[in-house]
Amino acid sequence: MEIGLAYTMLTPENASIRAALQSEGAAVAEINDERESFPLDGLSGAHKGVGSLLCRSSSFSRSLCLSYVFERNGVAAINSHAAQQVCGDKVLCSSALASAGIPTPKVSMAFSQASALQAVEAMGYPCVVKPPVGSWGRMVYKVTDRACAEAVVGLKAALGHYTDKIYYVQEYVDKPGRDIRVLLVGGEIALSICRTASSPGAFLTNLNAGGKASEFPLPPEMQEAAHKVGALLGSGIYGIDFIEGKEGGFYVLEVNHAPEFSKSAGADIGRVARKIAQFAIASAKN
């Protein structure tokens, strides 16, 4: 059994997944998306024996390309190209969650500066403006008043990429200084942690932005919502971010298609990697 492991960099997660695949008896075809090129009229000889492809690229666009090409050649991509498209684009993801009845903050999208400011005003202050594609809390802004909105919208308008002109305006949820990350692997909850902001009052809880992780026993209603997300996107590996309202209740904020887990799993990194490896092996098509 040969499993493809596509990555941009051998991060601690990717190194642990490689080791887990090997200890589960699989051969690993390492696919470095930075160094290799890929024919589009079939898989290269080195990749012809791959039964499933773990898409662990750091880059969303590279991962979309690789998952599509491998799927067209009969390889099970994990996650599927379709699931990655939804997870990697916050507009698609919020729309999918809302239409599936999964609680998620309200979002409006707009495509011009004027309509973006209207969307912000309609959402009310504070609200959150995010790029539709991006991660690690980059360019995620809490917009507190009209002057702040004009600055954020003006900044995005001045940037060069077309996705900067898609304005994603999200309802602000006054969370209790933490959010919850659930790792769903093949329909099984492999990890649940809460991430606490680096300092009191800090907006971002991303571990890359200095947030701290600790174990979190997942309540049944969040477990149910996590499984609904899995059913919505199809069997795969998902990092599901929940936030709680101060008045109770919870929301699924977003779903990550290539979740990191070295900082959140801590000493459990090997156990999580083993679950991912077992799922990749079980998903292999040949």
Binding site: M9, E34, S58, S59, S61, V133, S135, W136, N256
Partner: peptide
């Protein structure tokens, strides 16, 4: 700067791919 281990013996390092705007998880 992100540094990547290119070779082990003798050890050789280079610049790892630098973070681009669609990098993440």
């Amino acid at each position: 700067t992100l540094i990547e281990v290119l070779e082990l013996s003798p050890i050789k390092v280079g610049k790892a791919p630098q973070i681009e705007e669609d990098f993440g998880e």
